[in-house]
């Protein structure tokens, strides 16, 4: 059984159909990157996985359980799925330590004593253990995004979703975030990313998904697809993003 099973999912906003029957499996330990033009439905698909968007038909299973905004155990499901956003979305009125430990404390994953240790350990993983007492606005964009990743890690997720997490960063800050993500990948985290980072998609991902006009247009081994795209759409997309 795959960790995530997406079965023939359709989603529309009014008369605009953004997902036109998408099916996709994510196995445990896989690193799946979803690429495609803006408007191809890739971010919407990602947000459907933890029920931030409701789907109109089809089904999404997470560890065999059907996912929807109305499901029983929605909160328990979300505690297992970390998501990192383009705009970081840290809590500006809290220290970094508080940002990272709020959810583990409130959901009973740790007590107040254990929280400090937990914060240190996850912030160490993203290289920011010295920023416990800082506030988000005192950090650079790259640092804030690494805190956002640490905030998810503190919940020991089974799956991590990344929604264009480097798109809002200055170019010189992209590398530090990608490095953290590569380390997570190396440690066996299951990850689904929507990204424009073609090098990451080529070299780190285990599966590449190209979306076009609300459909999975092509999917497969990243190196093979990059070297040998089967459709003119993917070929032209790769052409535009080369180098």
């Amino acid at each position: 059984m795959a960790l995530v099973e997406i079965k023939n999912v359709r989603k529309n906003y009014g008369t605009l159909e953004v997902l036109k029957g998408v099916s996709l499996d994510v196995e445990k330990g896989e690193i799946v990157t979803i690429i495609g033009r803006s408007g191809s439905g890739k971010s919407t698909l990602l947000r459907c996985i933890n029920a931030l968007e409701t789907i109109n038909s089809g089904e999404i299973l997470l560890e065999g359980q059907s996912v929807s905004a109305k499901m029983d155990g929605l909160r328990q499901m979300r505690q297992k799925v970390g998501i990192v956003f383009q705009a970081f979305n840290l809590f500006p009125h809290m220290t970094i330590e508080k940002n990272v430990t709020l959810a583990p404390i409130l959901t009973g994953k740790t007590d107040k004593q254990g929280a400090r240790k937990l914060a240190l350990s996850v912030l160490e993983r993203v290289g920011l253990a010295d920023k416990l007492k800082a506030y988000p606005e005192q950090l650079s964009g790259g640092q804030q995004q690494r805190v956002a990743i640490a905030r998810c890690l503190a919940m020991s997720p089974h799956l991590m979703l990344f929604d264009e997490v480097t798109s809002a960063l200055d170019p010189e800050l992209v590398g530090e975030v990608l490095k953290v993500m590569e380390e997570m990948a190396a440690q066996g985290m299951t990850m689904v990313l929507v990204t424009h980072e073609m090098n990451f998609a080529r070299n780190v991902a285990t599966k590449l998904v190209f979306m076009h006009q609300g459909r999975v247009w092509e999917q497969g081994d990243p190196k093979t697809l990059f070297a040998n795209p089967q459709t003119p759409e993917l070929k032209s997309f790769i052409g535009h993003h080369a180098g």
Binding site: L52, R78, L102, A103, L106, R151, C152
Partner: peptide, 21 residues
């Protein structure tokens, strides 16, 4: 709105999101 969303994605209840975030 993204602040509510960030709280919801961490598995917090509506009340927890409101009170803490």
């Amino acid at each position: 709105q993204a602040q509510w969303e960030a709280g919801a994605c961490l598995g917090l209840s509506w009340l927890q999101q409101f009170v803490h975030i």
